[in-house]
């Protein structure tokens, strides 16, 4: 009796085991490897066993490394600007297009196309468009009699250029999530607000946005996490330049590993990024938890009443 009871309790874990093993091999092992490597002075020509143990030297070095700090700052700037702009444009578009328009499903597919294109292709495409002489932007500017803009060769403009490309690619993500959130709002509450006298703008600010807020917060956090890891588009567009003006962290990590041949430092940098993203993820998790707890509390109160 006792033993069959135990077997029953163990069965779920048997089923979970394959997934756990794959997770361990594919996720935990590389992370562990990376953490270990971050304590080494390791050149790619060495095997990992031959590398010298340097403890926290890579981490302290990075803290005092001006280029790393610059790169960290660029990443923060890039991520916060793109997320803010994408949220504004994406939510705005969703609010505009939340209506019965003929061919809406076709439109929606077109809107999310940028998201489906491989980032390398996006980078190449934008690089041609930004081209100083034959690119469409400068040609158009010239036709209209304006001066050409040094899209990718000026340190200020190059950051603007990568931000524009990222917004083009990722606004649709926020757009479709916001649209889904909008369309699941209680219709009758919106109708009630019309009868209560709310104008279109008042409906947006008093009813729609507050009700969409949980979805918007999660969407923004997801985008933020993604923006911190962006690599390909910038790699193709500017390769971090000019100077360090667009060298975001993941690009610096890749260069540290391949150009500077300092695997230990690159690993330490990855860990810094990982910690940052971890904090963001935990924040998102906690937010969900708080919301859930609140919902449970409300439920309990309702049942009491």
């Amino acid at each position: 009796m006792q033993s069959s009871f135990n077997t029953n309790r163990l069965i779920p874990y048997f089923f979970l085991a394959p997934a756990l093993i794959i997770l361990g091999v594919a996720l935990l092992y590389p992370i562990g490897y990376m953490i270990y490597a971050s304590f080494l002075d390791w050149n790619p020509s060495q095997r990992i066993g031959e590398a010298d143990w340097v403890g926290l030297r890579n981490y302290t070095f990075l803290l005092h490394d001006a280029s790393f700090r610059e790169s960290f700052f660029v990443t923060l700037k890039f991520a916060s600007i793109v997320v803010i702009l994408e949220m504004i444009i994406g939510v705005g578009l969703a609010l505009l297009l939340d209506r019965n328009i003929r061919g809406m499903s076709a439109l929606r597919t077109i809107f999310i196309l940028p998201m489906m294109i491989a980032p390398i292709v996006v980078g190449l495409m934008w690089r041609y468009m930004y081209h100083p002489t034959v690119g469409i932007f400068n040609r158009t500017l010239k036709d209209w009699g304006f001066e050409a803009i040094p899209w990718l060769s000026d340190s200020w403009w190059s950051l603007v250029s990568v931000i524009i490309a990222d917004i083009w690619q990722w606004t649709p993500f926020i757009f479709i999530l916001s649209l889904a959130a909008l369309q699941s709002l209680p219709r009758s509450a919106l109708e009630a607000s019309r009868i209560d006298g709310a104008t279109g703008w008042q409906q947006i600010f008093y009813i729609k946005l507050p009700l969409m807020m949980p979805v918007l917060i999660v969407t923004a956090l997801l985008r933020l996490i993604d923006a911190f890891k962006v690599l390909e588009v910038i790699l193709v567009l500017t390769n971090g330049g000019p100077g360090l003006s667009t060298e975001i962290l993941s690009l610096r990590i890749s260069r540290t590993a391949s150009e500077f041949r300092e695997l230990g430092v690159a690993a330490a940098m990855s860990n810094y990024l990982l910690i940052l993203l971890f904090v963001l993820t935990v924040a998102m998790f906690l937010y969900n938890k708080v919301v859930e707890k609140h919902a449970i509390k409300q439920q309990a109160k309702t049942e009491e009443a």
Binding site: P186, S188, A189, E191, A192, S193, I195, D196, G197, A198, Q202, Y206, I207, P210, L211
Partner: peptide
């Protein structure tokens, strides 16, 4: 003024705010 089948209250506002929304506007 209208009373809806599913009440159509504003879920994010407390009862006082629900009732006073029209007056506030």
């Amino acid at each position: 003024a209208m009373v809806f089948q599913d009440y159509a209250l504003y879920p994010h506002m407390n009862i006082a705010k629900n009732m006073s929304f029209a007056l506030k506007l």
